[in-house]
Design a binder for these strands. Structure first.
Lengths: 214, 214
DNA sequence: GTCTATAAGATGATAGAC
DNA sequence: GTCTATCATCTTATAGAC
């Protein structure tokens, strides 16, 4: 099972996970895998296709790993707990960095773009039903759609990862702030009918004065 | 004023603003500027230093442009309004893409990293006092610090930009969801003492069961 | 300041021996 | 399947004429 193909897939994923990304060239990846550079083209055709395959495998593994944890989530605090664990694990493993570099390079390379699209859609497919289930009984269900929220969460993860590479301390502060803001949602659910009524009337006012675009 | 230096700065910024980024090489930038490739090294030393200078200029211009608008903000809805305008303008101009590519390349190149650090700190310096002023009289001031929130907002902007390059529709949905979530904060301010009390007790409970890390 | 020419090296990819 | 050797092209950067 540790044949050349998987060696190359591992090496490509590692290259993207670490600082490099721009240095994810055929020669460096092959060197990392301990195999000849020409084998990349024999097995995968192009470097981009190797990277695509590596990311495909990585995101599938990660999503599968969290599936049952997601299934057990029934409350928003519970979702935040899984999210925090997921963020820390994926970050330490380097998968978030991989995604960030993938999306950043998507502008130049259509193959990388399709890989990025697959990765994001895969994560959203996991997150979206959980968000929907958790918000179903909350007054928040009336102001947000779960699909949009899932996208927002994914995008923010990516942004925080990039930000962390530039200013680790600031990124940690940002994450703390977001977590504390999550308490706000929690309080809302506990407030019950009073908040629900206030929210409804407020929403009406906002929708009247500021019609949504397009 | 349209000398070679500024021509090169313009061309470098444009290269980063558009799809390319990876193709922001000395030759392509010089070609875009309509000058000889060797002049980049004469005027800036290295390609990275040219890019750094271009980003420095771009973020200074943009931040100055919004300074007085930020100063006029007194409420959270007002802040969201400016944020929405800022996001759309900076996006259409391409500055957010520039930042994203800058941060993505920061891992490889220490000069790009310092440019990214400057850009983020510059924006945070503008946003942070506004957030602090707006939240001062809100019960939310007790659960979030303005510095962390400012970082979170900046990072999320970056992430959304990258996400938009991969899935434009999803990014639009995400932005809509976040905007609608902003109404939630608005409602909180209007609820007054009831919410304030509920929030305080909830915070106590959360802090007791789940001590913050490090 | 601006140009040409060029060094010195990395890149993706292929041909062909084994 | 794997290797060596190689192509054509791109890269940053410099030397030196003007």
């Amino acid at each position: 099972m540790t044949d050349t193909r998987t060696k190359l897939l591992d090496a490509a994923a590692d290259a993207l996970r670490e600082h490099e990304a721009a240095q994810a060239s055929a020669r460096t990846i092959a060197g990392r895998a301990g195999v000849n550079q020409a084998l990349i083209f024999y097995h995968f055709g192009t470097v981009s296709e190797l990277i695509e395959a590596a990311c495909h495998r990585a995101v599938d593994e990660a999503a599968d790993h969290y599936r049952e944890q997601f299934d057990r989530v029934t409350s928003l605090p519970g979702l935040l707990d899984v999210g925090r664990e997921l963020h820390q694990r994926e970050r330490s493993v380097g998968n978030v960095a991989m995604m960030a570099h993938l999306m950043s390079g998507a502008g130049n390379d259509p193959i990388l773009a399709s890989a990025a699209r697959y990765a994001m859609s895969r994560w959203n497919a996991e997150i979206e039903p959980v968000v929907a289930r958790v918000l179903r009984d909350s007054p928040l269900a009336e102001i947000t759609d779960s699909a949009g929220l899932a996208c927002a969460v994914s995008a923010s993860f990516i942004g925080l990862e990039l930000y962390e590479g530039v200013d680790p301390e600031g990124a940690a502060n940002a994450l703390d702030s977001l977590e504390r803001l999550g308490v706000l949602v929690d309080v809302f659910d506990d407030l019950g009918p009073i908040a629900r009524r206030a929210l409804r009337s407020k929403l009406k006012a906002v929708r009247a004065t500021e019609p949504r675009r397009a």
